[in-house]
Design a binder for these strands. Structure first.
Lengths: 342, 342
DNA sequence: TATGTTTGCACAAACGTTTGCGCAAGGCTC
DNA sequence: GAGCCTTGCGCAAACGTTTGTGCAAACATA
């Protein structure tokens, strides 16, 4: 295996000093009055020998890495892959590289991943937290710019950008109500998660505004297909089964559909469903699924914007932003066959 | 923003030298005969002030980063997200961190991403190449361990691990033939891509073995939903439309299904379909889709294993491995209504 | 008490950069 | 030809580590 070129090796072979070469390659030739001729020679030589600076040395010296960290709970989840994609592209536009760490929805991994990022002297970090407390993150925020995305801590001053899950959920529930549904089951994700709990809140509020507080039924434990399956299975087996199911994530939706199919129920004829999250494949299910659509791209752009601003200004920012979701209407909602007893 | 602890700051406050502290924290106390007492004091202090080593300095000195790069064409594609997931987890098991770069299926981005990784002194890199030539990668291989995954260059000696796309495709086509289909359309991805061309080869070979060389019809241009839609639309409008469609990716499949639906064809009654790639949601389409299942997990594990071995032994490896795919049978294949003219 | 051995740690160089400062050579002014 | 300014570049310190070597003190031996 051959060696890589360094400023030193170039200096030896061109006869110029290390500093001169460094300045030329960093575009500071003018500032330091390096002659045209020298600049040309050095640039040519560097080009020819395919020199690339050693980033570790560079950042050791400058304290900057032009790198931001991105810590997500599971890159395997298309929602987070989507976020990662946007953030990687957006960072790239601003000449930043992204280091992606997967915390596997595990507090310990999250903590270690964060430390690993900090050790690398990243300039800032974007986090979808999976722990329940903001403590470590707040400590990090003392010395490193940090922005939360998707999940956040309402009681903390950490900056975040997320979807207005409450509003999205409220609107979706409202839509079902407007179609005439009165027995609407809500299947939630982990109740500790702010995204899930806000969605539940929206669901309850919509029922409340219809004077149906007592009809609110929420169950479920996590964002898994299995959870959706089990909860839907139970709900549909009840004496007075729901006429509509509101699945608080697309995975929960998949489980719900399976349960509906097994119960011999056709969607939307026998059962209406509405989901969260917007994936292409939701259009290819039968029927295509009406869902609450999070503005992922805008979230990613905003998060990067906030982060880079904090990096540039070297001071904290406490913006806490919720973006409005929209509803993508497809074919999974219809008026119930017959109004329930109520 | 507060300062981070360094060996120097700890040295000043504990009275021990930098080297002693370094050795203690690296578990080399024994080797350098640091007393029990000193070890304890230093460890306690480091713990208390939450010291984490500066990785850039560390790797500048040691030339190792315990980091591997992963360069994929698009993290937004669940297939690559899945690969990334496996590799991240597997690397983690061996105490390696992964830096993920997205080349956006763009040669220039790939090249720059690779340089960015190299600048970081990563210990090795796993690549799903998107360029058509192995030149740059072969040059990198001169000084940095590299393993290709999924896509590879048959004429190059670069090590790779991939699926036996030929075999998977052969078997799938064979299955359709065994069901009695004689008019099978194949919708491919980019013809320059080895994965797509191998799949096409498998398709042709299977037809050949049935003495149906002249019935081979391949069309398509990329792994997009739109491509699948357009090609299927065209195929189904022909005077003698296919009784089965082999979609060479799951995205092509989605387009195909949409076209079939618009043509009023029911799957599998009026049209059989079979796909590549194995995603959960394929089970939730109507009907669930029979598909060729790539052993992604094994591929990831093998790639990491090969890479770490190269890193450890500090020498090249030229293993070129194809893992056998399997077929996941669901409900999208059935015997054709009536045998075609042939 | 003199000598050798062990114990326990510190010194300093090196990794590849960046950057403030300095210095030599040449040109200009008078 | 003396003094000053400009041009063009090099010196060396610093970033936070790791690690080969060195050295003083303590201890053991004779």
């Amino acid at each position: 295996m051959t060696q890589k070129e360094t400023l030193i090796s170039i200096a030896e072979r061109t006869g110029f000093s290390i500093s001169t070469i460094s300045r030329v390659l960093n575009g500071k030739a003018q500032k330091y009055r390096i002659s045209e001729q020298t600049v040309r020679k050095i640039k040519e030589f560097a080009q020819k020998c395919n020199y690339t600076p050693n980033l570790t040395a560079q950042s050791l010296r400058t304290k900057r890495t032009n790198t931001v960290g991105l810590l997500v709970p599971s890159i395997d989840n298309p929602f987070f892959a989507n976020i990662a994609n946007v953030i990687i592209h957006e960072a790239r536009l601003h000449d930043y590289t992204v280091i992606l760490i997967d915390s596997m929805e595990n507090e310990k991994e999250e903590s270690e991943g964060l430390n690993s990022l900090l050790s690398r002297n990243i300039d800032g970090v974007i986090v979808v937290p999976c722990s329940n407390t903001p403590e470590q993150l707040e400590e990090v925020a003392q010395h490193t710019p940090i922005v939360l995305i998707d999940r956040y801590f309402p009681e903390s001053s950490l900056p975040y950008v997320s979807t207005d899950n409450f509003q999205g959920s409220y609107n979706a529930t409202r839509m079902l109500l407007d179609y005439g549904h009165r027995n609407i089951r809500c299947i939630q994700g982990p109740s500790a998660s702010i995204t899930s709990s806000e969605r539940v809140r929206g669901y309850r509020e919509a029922l409340h505004d219809f004077g149906l507080d007592d009809r609110a039924v929420v169950s479920g434990s996590d964002f898994s297909i299995q959870n959706g399956y089990i909860e839907a299975k139970l709900a549909l087996a009840e004496p007075e089964p729901p006429t509509a199911i509101f699945a608080l994530s697309n995975t929960i939706l998949l489980g719900t559909m399976k349960a509906a199919e097994e119960a011999g129920l056709r969607i939307p004829d026998d059962l209406s469903v509405i989901s969260f999250d917007n994936y292409t494949y939701l259009d290819f299910l039968s029927p295509a699924i009406t869902r609450v659509n999070q503005p992922i791209e805008e979230m990613g752009i905003l998060a990067i914007k906030m982060l880079l601003q904090m990096i540039r200004d070297n001071r904290a920012n406490h913006s806490q932003i919720l973006l409005p979701p929209t509803i993508t209407v497809r074919d999974s909602v219809r008026a119930p066959r017959k109004t329930t007893a109520e």
